[in-house]
Write a protein that binds this DNA or RNA. Structure first.
Lengths: 159, 159
DNA sequence: AGCCATTTGTTGCATAGGCAACTATCCTTC
DNA sequence: GAAGGATAGTTGCCTATGCAACAAATGGCT
């Protein structure tokens, strides 16, 4: 069924479809069970681990766009899962934390995350998983977006 | 700088940011050089390899949504890179192929693809790359979307 | 031949996501 | 303490992406 097209051996493509499949499956689970989007789930996870932090902290920790963080926080606040309190040290920002309801949900969603990770990693050794993580980190670092000048001056051996 | 948050060790998350970084970088290159989106580039690559095929074939080969394939083909046709001819065997579909201009561009874009792949794989052994590909394939297959009934009946050990 | 289910391609709609611009606040420097 | 640049958060806009619904055509079944 799956043909051996050259495209199917192109590593960035394989990475993309695997990531989309995993993300799509996880998004489906969290939406069906708790009505959470992926950005919302990530904010819940970070707030559960780090406690009282600002949107700026969440942006740094999650590597998400600050707008994505802001919108996720707004939804969670409207649902009563997160509360904002004024930040005495900096009037521009607010301190965010889980409410009791948010902590209850956090206690529900984390075991599912760990279980899903365990499932998709089943059958691979610790060494293989470490190699896999190392490669993902390397791919991430080597693919950082550079500015336009660098692109123009770097012709990849073409022509 | 990069904190050791639990989220940063969550494999689906690492997979997502690595894939986004790689895809974003590649998309940037192809947009800057030839004004091609990722779906358009994929269609170009497949047409270059497989010759005269239908949109249905392209959808199967690329694993993309049929709408994405259709829109990419339309753009490529408008740019004179792809041409459609009636399909005598099936009046519903058309046969797609690269024009001479499209073949010229194909000859340009494939070396860049191979060079980018070589770069991001630099420093890893063939065995490591094979393990990596195997894991991506496995993640993809294990994460196939299932229907809603399966989700409800499968509680992942919660409660 | 006629009907019905299936398939291909297309369009429209609804959502997600990122970037630029803006406000408010902070911090430095004079 | 006033001015200028930097930073946190917010809003609006634009694009990308995917699904549902649809029209045209096919193929099977009687």
């Amino acid at each position: 069924m799956q043909q051996m097209a050259p495209l199917a051996r192109f590593l960035p493509y394989q990475l993309s479809i695997a990531s989309n499949a995993v993300s799509g499956r996880i998004a489906q689970e969290y939406r069906a069970r708790w009505g959470l989007s992926v950005p919302e789930w990530r904010v819940m996870a970070l707030l559960g681990d780090f406690g009282t932090i600002t949107q700026r902290d969440l942006t740094r920790l999650s590597l998400m766009d600050k707008v994505a963080v802001n919108r996720a926080c707004k939804v969670l606040e409207d649902r009563g899962l997160v509360e904002r309190t004024p930040n005495q040290q900096d009037g521009r920002s607010h301190l965010l934390d889980l409410t009791q309801s948010g902590r209850d949900m956090h206690a529900q969603i984390m075991p599912l995350a760990r279980e899903m990770e365990r499932r998709i990693c089943a059958g691979f050794s610790e060494a293989e998983l470490e190699t896999f993580r190392a490669m993902l980190d390397r791919l991430h670092r080597q693919s950082e977006i550079v500015d336009a000048d660098d692109i123009v001056s770097d012709n990849f051996g073409i022509e």
